[in-house]
């Protein structure tokens, strides 16, 4: 995807700048980075290999670091015995719906702020404060209200909550993209008889689509990763992957590794994809709490 490219010109310039002083410092730099890679990716390596091990390999000593005969048996068990397929689908459906809803609702608001400075600085700051609001403060009244309305253990309840909780973040990022958008194109469309809304949908949206994709991916991953709302509000049918995973912890420190590791692999899959697709936007997105629901 196009948004994954780090400004190549700057990279090339820096490369030129440093060329020619490859010495001991160079070797040490890469040794340090290698150590960092081992530390930060090691757990993923362990989880992936564990999920592919046969049952006897768990108990082997010396430990089996790379299984000789990788098998997908644990994934099959997860999908059938532990209803993993259902919960994986739940996560996908809930995250996708919340992502779409959050975009649709946030875009006009972001437009109002970017074009008309709607609400002045106050609205922007209030949105940021809302973004910092701890979920624990929201889940207590929401739980009681959902209980009264019969919205616990329902997709609607979860999707509505995730959508709204995500609006402040989506608006913040979208305002940035809209401000970069040349107002002349839109004005030209409106002179040709387009209404504001039509200009937004038919002229602005296609051009800022890459920016919207960034917001969408952050919204998706944030909903996918969210845990507190999910554990409180989901029931047996509506559990997400995050809730499923915690059900494997009941076996104490040495729990049943096979299905647990398989579910972790599936649970971190979107993070891997998004980390590569959003490289350029990671700082901004993470700083605003993009991955936390």
């Amino acid at each position: 995807m196009a948004i994954a490219i780090e400004r190549p010109r700057i990279v090339a310039r820096r490369a030129r700048r440093y060329r020619g002083r490859r010495g001991l410092g160079h070797v040490l730099t890469y040794l340090g980075l290698l150590a960092a890679l081992v530390f930060f990716l090691g757990p993923f390596f362990w989880i992936v290999t564990t999920s592919l091990k046969g049952n006897e390999d768990f108990f082997a000593f010396p430990p089996v670091w790379i299984p000789a005969e990788p098998s997908l048996a644990h994934y099959v068990a997860l999908f059938t015995r532990s209803s993993g397929a259902r919960y994986f689908t739940n996560s996908l459906v809930i995250s996708s719906l919340s992502m779409i809803a959050a975009l649709v609702v946030s875009l006009p608001t972001a437009y109002a702020i970017a074009r008309w400075r709607f609400g002045g600085g106050l609205l922007s700051v209030s949105l940021l404060v809302l973004r910092m609001l701890p979920s624990i403060a929201l889940i207590i009244p929401i739980y009681i209200m959902y209980k009264m309305l019969g919205l616990t253990n329902s997709y609607l309840g979860l999707v509505a909550l995730y959508t709204v909780v995500y609006i402040p973040f989506a608006v913040w990022l979208l305002v940035g993209f809209l401000r970069d958008f040349p107002i002349e194109i839109e004005e030209a469309a409106m002179i040709d008889g387009c209404s504001r809304l039509r200009a937004l949908v038919q002229v602005v949206v296609p051009i800022i689509a890459p920016g919207m994709a960034v917001v969408a991916l952050f919204a998706f991953i944030a909903t996918w990763n969210e845990f507190l709302f999910a554990i409180v509000l989901t029931g047996i049918e509506t559990k997400t992957m995050m809730v499923l995973v915690t059900s494997f912890t009941s076996g104490g420190t040495d729990m049943f590794y096979g299905e647990a590791s398989a579910s972790v692999v599936l649970g971190v899959l979107p993070a891997f994809a998004v980390a590569f697709m959003l490289q350029r936007y990671l700082v901004k997105g993470l700083a605003l709490g993009g991955t936390k629901g």
């Binding site: 780090e6 960092a36 890679l37 930060f40 990716l41 090691g42 757990p43 993923f44 362990w46 989880i47 564990t50 768990f58 108990f59 430990p63 991953i221 996918w224 990763n225 969210e226 845990f227 995050m242 995973v245 915690t246 494997f248 912890t249 420190t253 040495d254 729990m255 590794y257 647990a260 590791s261 579910s263 972790v264 649970g267 971190v268 993070a271 891997f272 998004v274 980390a275 590569f276 490289q279 990671l282 993470l286 991955t291």
Partner: peptide, 29 residues
């Protein structure tokens, strides 16, 4: 950079789960 950024993208629950299996008393890494 992208590879090193991955842990920050995963959910705290998944991070903790992976590490629980790392910390496992008998079978942990």
């Amino acid at each position: 950079t992208a590879l090193l950024a991955i842990p920050a993208m995963v959910s705290p629950v998944m991070a903790a789960m992976a590490w629980r299996m790392m910390f496992g008393v008998k079978f942990g890494a």
